[in-house]
């Protein structure tokens, strides 16, 4: 197989695999946040803020994978 083809596969795999975990994580975070809001609607502001912080942490992992996939795709590494 050509190097270019391997590169494309690696690019796709990097972001594809990296998105699995954070996807599940974000789902759990939002589910918990929505349950919390349903239970205690007055605390919605705080919960949404903390939810976004949590999402940012989980999403950062996917973003790392994305950056790696860009690096592979653009031929930097």
């Amino acid at each position: 197989m050509e190097v270019e083809g391997l590169r494309l596969i690696a690019t796709a795999l990097a972001i594809g695999l990296a998105a699995i975990g954070p996807g599940i994580g974000v789902g759990i975070i939002v589910s918990g946040a929505l349950q919390a809001i349903g239970r205690n609607p007055e605390a919605q502001g705080t919960i949404v803020t903390n939810m976004f912080i949590g999402i940012a942490f989980a999403e950062a992992l996917a973003i790392f994978g994305l950056v790696i996939s860009f690096l592979i795709g653009f031929g930097i590494i």
């Binding site: 940012a56 950062a60 790392f64 950056v67």
Partner: peptide, 8 residues
Amino acid sequence: FRLFGNIF
């Protein structure tokens, strides 16, 4: 990379 990755 969070900021860069998201925007890029």
